[in-house]
Design a binder for these strands. Structure first.
Lengths: 171, 171
DNA sequence: CGCCAAGGCTGCGAAATCCGCAAGCATCGG
DNA sequence: CCGATGCTTGCGGATTTCGCAGCCTTGGCG
């Protein structure tokens, strides 16, 4: 359940520039390719080609382009609990002033895995991953609340992760 | 050749059985391997071996085991906005009665990408991915609220995704 | 209409990688 | 001492990756 990137075409985190529709959405064939790779990120190009009706080389080119454009990443994802992290939480943030600058500050924290600007009673929703309660307390109480513009926060500590998929575009 | 789609290591979603620490957390070397694959899910075993100080065969065995145990998955991840989904939201759910049964019902919905049981003012947090406003409305107002045990919900529509990483275990 | 450039696809060898397997070691625990 | 486990080295064959040379279609343009 989680993953990330590398070297040449690595996109460590995606901000507006990348996720902005830098172009039109992928066509049906590329979607099909993505779907294949969502099932198994290491599936051979030839197998994908057979499944979507394209040659191996064509699949290779399209995958490379999708990677370069930042439309998708092929990465290993894990369940944080199985790799030693004991505390996770979703934090809702109330902001006064510029929301985006606060979002940027939170984005810079390594403990924040997920930062999104929202409409509703919270201005920001942030998912954080910590090693233990002390760590969690430190991040929420000291670091996040210290960011200029943060008026208040509300935390939702994870008790159990029930579902986490990566099947976008599949339906 | 690939009629074995079903097979071995597909873990479309993980529930308690899988994510429960089925064993001790991976050792330092396996963590290092995961880290490599978080950078590039297609990196060759030999390259990984060189990076973590193991032979190609050993890396192969460990990766296979990590996959089989469900500790990690290697998959393609995309930004929903770039593949045609226009509306995303985080929904906080207040439950009366058994929280887990509600969580299971939500988990069964394909629009729910992420379902987690939490402590705090919400009993559940659910991330939803939809094609447009109508779709979103339908899911929240009709489907989710129709689940027995759901007392009320609060929605946070996504305005902008600022960060999304997959670097667990890396820090 | 004719020409040309660009983009996407196919088909190929060549190189690299994957994969199973066997033999040899070292460690750990009963 | 024995058995289980995990790693290494080595090996060959199957598979996959990769670069490149065509080919074809599309779109711009005189």
């Amino acid at each position: 359940m989680h993953s990330d990137v590398v070297a040449s075409r690595s996109a460590e985190h995606r901000d507006s520039r990348e996720s902005r529709n830098g172009g039109s959405p992928p066509d049906a064939v590329s979607l099909a390719i993505i779907e294949q790779l969502q099932e198994d990120g290491r599936r051979p190009y030839a197998a994908i080609g057979k499944a979507v009706g394209l040659s191996e080389a064509a699949v290779r080119q399209r995958v490379q382009k999708l990677l370069d454009q930042g439309v998708m990443q092929i990465v290993a994802v894990t369940d944080p609990l199985t790799v030693g992290f004991r505390r996770q939480a979703m934090v809702g943030v109330h902001v006064e002033g510029d929301v985006e600058s606060v979002a940027d500050a939170l984005t810079a924290m390594s403990e924040c895995e997920y930062v999104v600007m929202t409409a509703g009673s919270f201005d920001l929703m942030v998912e954080i991953v910590c090693e233990d309660d002390d760590h969690l307390l430190d991040v929420i109480n000291r670091r996040i609340r210290a960011v200029p513009g943060v008026r208040s926060t509300e935390s939702f500590v994870y008790l159990k992760l029930k579902k986490q998929t990566y099947m976008w575009g599949t339906r």
